[in-house]
């Protein structure tokens, strides 16, 4: 019976793929913060005359997400990503604009709404550190009103997926960061939410743990049809998981489209590494190409993407032993993406 209901729910999710599960219009959030001049005098003055400044964290954001999508939110620190997620989950109230998530106004904080989503913040834990994950899961079973069979089936599914059999009965405080993140995800996904909000889930994790977490998220999105909204500073997370990316800077959306296209757009250079059997003293380079590293037997050249063919043709003339063509370094791509946002701001 539980299985049948589960499949029906998955089916509904797949049928609802064309529906917007999240929609915002002209959404804005302004924080007010106290400003104080430095020193004791400034503190005394602030006691009698408090000065405030306003910081607009999100500005006139129009944004929508369809059911089943995996969307990445990218932006530098303070861009407004976390503020947007907090508004979508109802944690904070917007200053102006409209917001609708699964048909609910999030800040009404209705229990029916809260039962349908989950949020995992990399720097914040839902688990009880002195207890075991099993203890927390049992509490969440009751909080989300899960029947025993449904609870056991979901727990078994995630235990297998995360390879977490031996982790459920140990104190959470003794788990490694990667293990703890798996347990956080398990606790968050126990009630099979329609939307999963993830704020920096791989922060501080090593490469192996990050790759594992990415694998789990991909499976949850594809197999369970869970809509996922992910913020991360690690572009590898965004590129390998999200079909769609939204770039935010200074509270405004500066890109909303396919992740592949985003990287294509900003990936302007190629790096070509060429090695020779015999010493080659000089190579002729096409316009725009820059020698990054040079020895008689090896040259590393950065070249604009559209000139890479011409460069390779010239290099072939020297009879190379080996040629490696690499994509632009991801850090440079990110700098360009954010840099474009800055320029728009200035304009």
């Amino acid at each position: 019976m539980t299985k049948v209901r589960e499949w029906q729910r998955m089916d509904n999710r797949k049928r609802g793929k064309d529906m917007n599960i999240i929609e915002t219009r002209q959404l804005s959030k302004t924080y007010r913060r106290v400003v104080k001049r430095e020193g004791l005098g400034g503190s005394v003055r602030s006691l009698f005359r408090r000065e405030y400044e306003e910081k607009q964290a999100v500005r006139d954001m129009d944004f929508s997400v369809r059911e089943g999508e995996f969307v990445g939110l990218i932006g530098p620190n303070g861009a407004g990503k976390t503020t947007l997620i907090k508004m979508l989950t109802g944690i904070i109230a917007p200053t102006s604009g409209e917001i609708q998530v699964m048909g609910f106004c999030p800040n009404d904080l209705k229990n029916d709404f809260k039962r349908q989503y989950a949020i995992v913040m990399g720097q914040k834990s839902q688990l009880f550190f002195e207890l075991t994950t099993n203890d927390t899961l049992r509490m969440f079973q009751e909080i989300y009103g899960l029947k025993e069979r449904e609870f056991q089936e979901t727990k078994a599914y995630f235990t297998e997926l995360f390879g977490a059999e031996k982790l459920l009965d140990v104190q959470v405080r003794t788990l490694s960061l990667g293990e703890r993140m798996k347990m956080e995800l398990m606790a968050a996904l126990l009630h099979n939410p329609r939307i999963l909000f993830l704020d920096e889930p791989t922060i501080g994790l090593d490469a192996v743990a990050s790759r594992q977490i990415r694998g789990f998220l991909r499976e949850i999105n594809q197999e369970r049809g869970t809509t996922i909204l992910l913020t991360s500073h690690y572009m590898e997370d965004i590129r390998s998981l999200c079909d769609r990316s939204v770039v935010i800077n200074h509270g405004q959306k500066i890109y909303d489209g396919e992740t592949g296209e985003l990287f294509e757009k900003y990936q302007r250079d190629r790096q070509v590494t060429v090695s020779f059997d015999q010493a080659v003293e000089r190579t002729e380079l096409p316009d725009g190409a820059v020698l990054v590293e040079e020895t008689p037997y090896k040259k590393v050249i950065r070249v604009p993407r559209e000139e890479s063919g011409a460069l390779l043709q010239r290099l072939m003339g020297y009879g190379p032993k080996d040629v490696i063509v690499e994509e632009d370094e991801i850090g440079r791509v990110v700098e360009r993406i954010y840099g474009e946002g800055e320029n728009r701001e200035e304009r």
Partner: peptide
Amino acid sequence: RKYREIMHVYIKSQLAW
């Protein structure tokens, strides 16, 4: 039952030490 389970969790937390 939600609140009963929350209560249980805090009893268990006390017993941890």
